[in-house]
Design a protein around this nucleic acid. Structure first.
Length: 334
DNA sequence: TAGGCCATCTGGTCCT
DNA sequence: AGGACCAGATGGCCTA
């Protein structure tokens, strides 16, 4: 599910909590938090009820369940003096603040991850789980690309990217590429289904003004999002290109197979074979029409397309050498 | 209204 | 002892 941007003040608290708390300013921060976020009723409520719950806790010590056993397991809490109680409370508040700070750091890292996976959008953010899934697929696809040492088939690349993603995210990824998600759905048998056209033709929507729609806003993409999707898998189209099992291709042990196919001293590297000389071939790079700032990327795109295919991208004769990550990244981002 | 996503609080566990 | 990390619980917001 796609989520709203975190910048929305009523949703996000980055403004309230900076990168981290200074321990001295903690109680003040908590006070500011209360003042600035009246909507944060739960935690505030919890804190105001803190004293009450402490009292209840003391009372509860005599509580027993139906078996006559104490309801609370483990060693009973010592009764704290007021000073100790206040200190424990303060420590809990500090721990809460640290936890918030930690989670903010985690979110910041996740946000930076969002920016380097395909289809980054400030207005329509991927959820955390979808970001992680897409990142995993992206790494996988790039690894396979490096492993193969040749430009990937765009269809399989996109299919790998979308593997395991939710329908809305799949639509978004497809939308970023001006693809029609419906065209790489599978039939009941799990086979990739094309609507009687070549894969490339099937991937792109040519319906009316779609070609002029901004990325992610094509009518067909939206339409596809409004219809119920069948479940699909990429297994059949995946295997011919990728040597290794596809991510999550039905294997429950996939996570154990995720090690990068090309790993050299912990860093991805190309095979020692001579890299293919792409400049000798009449391969075409592509440039995303809706992204004028991407012009610089156009010449180095790794995707090969059929020159006769109708294509919503500017085509450029390729003359530069193969470059992988940056250009792929740039080509996918909208 | 249900379900998804999120931030936060909280207590437990592990490590230094 | 204290901090980091984790997972469960909770409640708010949003969307279909």
């Amino acid at each position: 599910m796609l989520t709203l941007p975190f910048e929305e003040p009523h949703r996000m608290c980055e403004a309230r909590f900076g990168a981290s708390y200074s321990r001295e300013s903690l109680p003040e921060s908590l006070e500011q938090e209360r003042q600035h976020d009246p909507g944060r009723s739960s935690s505030s409520l919890r804190e105001t009820e803190d004293d009450m719950s402490d009292r209840e806790e003391d009372d509860r010590e005599d509580d027993q369940d139906e078996n006559g056993l104490p309801k609370k397991r483990g060693p009973r809490k010592k009764k704290l003096g007021k000073e100790q109680h206040d200190r424990a409370k303060l420590r809990r508040q500090e721990a809460n603040a640290r936890e918030r700070s930690r989670m903010h750091g985690l979110n910041a890292a996740l946000e930076s991850l969002r920016k380097v996976v395909p289809c980054y959008s400030k207005t329509q953010k991927l959820s955390k789980i979808e970001t992680l899934r897409l990142a995993k697929n992206y790494i996988w696809a790039l690894s396979e690309t490096l492993s193969a040492g040749k430009r990937p088939d765009l269809l399989t690349f996109v299919q790998t990217l979308c593997k395991g993603l939710s329908q809305p995210t799949t639509n978004l990824v497809a939308g970023c590429l001006q693809l029609n998600a419906r065209n790489f759905l599978t039939d009941h048998n799990g086979d990739i289904m094309f609507s009687g056209r070549s894969p490339y033709e099937a991937m792109y929507s040519y319906q009316g003004s779609d070609m002029n729609s901004p990325p992610g806003h094509s009518a067909s993409t939206l339409e596809s999002g409004s219809k119920p999707f069948r479940h699909y898998s990429y297994s059949s189209a995946y295997e011919p290109y990728f040597e290794n099992p596809s991510p999550e291709s039905g294997s429950p042990h996939f996570d154990g197979q995720l090690s990068p196919p090309m790993n050299f001293s912990g860093i991805f590297s190309l095979k020692h074979e001579e890299p293919p000389d792409y400049s000798k071939n009449s391969h075409y790079g592509m440039r995303y029409c809706g992204a004028p700032g991407r012009a610089a990327l156009a010449h180095n795109s790794m995707y090969r397309v059929s020159p006769e295919a109708r294509f919503p991208y500017d085509l450029h004769l390729r003359s530069q050498s193969f470059q992988a990550q940056g250009e792929v990244n740039g080509s996918f981002h909208n």
